[in-house]
Structures are given as C-alpha cells and as structure tokens.
C-alpha cells in the first residue's frame, strides 16, 4: 500500500491539485467579495501544496514537504496582512466589494454599473434554536436577535 514511485497515485494527486488550483483561479476571477477572493487564493495554495507533496512522495525527497511548510507560513502572513487591508478598505467604503475601487480607473472611462438585481424571493432559512429554559432575559425589541440571512 505504501509503495513509493506510484505513477498513478502521482497522477491522481496532481489531478486533484490541478482541479483545486483551477477552481481557486475561477473563484478569484469571478467572486466580487474580497473575503471570498482570499479564500479562493488559499484554495490555489492548497492545490499547489497537494502537487508538491505528491511529487515529494514520488521522488522520495523532502523538498516538497519543506516547501509546503513554507507555503503554510507565507499563507499565514499573507492572510494576516491581507485581512488588515480588507478591513481598512471596508472601513473606507462600507463594502467588501472589489469593484468598489473602480474609481481608480482612467478619467475618461465610463463607470461599470451592475445590472438591476431581482429581489430575493426565497424564504429565509430557519436556523435551529434551543428550547427556551428558565427566565427569558429582557431583550431590546428593536434589536434583531439574529441575522436574517448570512
């Protein structure tokens, strides 16, 4: 089972890595939410990690493992710094929209406007709640207890 130099295992693992990488790429290119863009970027890193480990196993070499550890490290750094920037951007525009910064475009280029979106007609999902026990704490009527939709 734990045989080395298994070419099929390598190929299958590489395929998984490629699929993760491609999905991450599509996510980065399409999703407008900055947080989701970063999730997609992390996903690309995961694809790379899988590929590296697969090669490492195939060659019986530690290089891929070590490299993946560094990938983890750099990803942590990147996440910390990037999230700070995302928060800063959010506190300036009030949105997590990557297109919120299109004011950086050329002066004579028209603004790209989203099309009118239909309203959401789906029923908000119901989330499970615990059965009330004991005395109900006094609550502010105006404050929603939960988000309507996450």
């Amino acid at each position: 089972m734990n045989t080395v130099q298994s070419l099929p295992l390598l190929q299958n693992a590489l395929t998984v890595g490629a699929i993760l990488f491609s999905l991450g790429l599509v996510g980065i290119l399409t999703r407008r939410n900055l947080i989701v863009m970063f999730l997609a970027a992390e996903m690309m890193l995961q694809g790379i990690s899988v590929s590296l480990v697969a090669w490492s196993r195939y060659h019986g070499d530690w290089g891929g493992h070590v490299l993946v550890i560094f990938v983890l490290t750099v990803a942590a750094c990147e996440a910390a710094v990037a999230l700070v920037f995302v928060l800063q951007a959010f506190s300036r525009t009030g949105r997590l929209d990557a297109a919120a910064w299109q004011s950086l475009r050329e002066a004579n280029v028209a603004r790209t406007v989203d099309h009118e979106l239909p309203s959401i007609d789906t029923v908000p999902p119901r989330f499970p709640t615990l059965a009330p026990a004991g005395v109900l704490p006094p609550a502010d009527e105006n404050e929603p207890l939960q988000r309507e939709h996450v």
Binding site: I28, L29, A98, A99, W101, Q102, R105, N108, V109, T112
Partner: peptide, 17 residues
C-alpha cells in the same frame, strides 16, 4: 490602451490569466 483601464481589479487579473 487606456480604455481598458476600468479600475476593476478582477478584469485586470482575468487579462493576466
């Protein structure tokens, strides 16, 4: 070329990809 500078980050990324 300037016309393509839309300010949309992901359009730039798409072009690069």
């Amino acid at each position: 070329v300037r016309r393509s500078q839309s300010g949309l980050l992901q359009r730039y990324a798409l072009a690069g990809v």
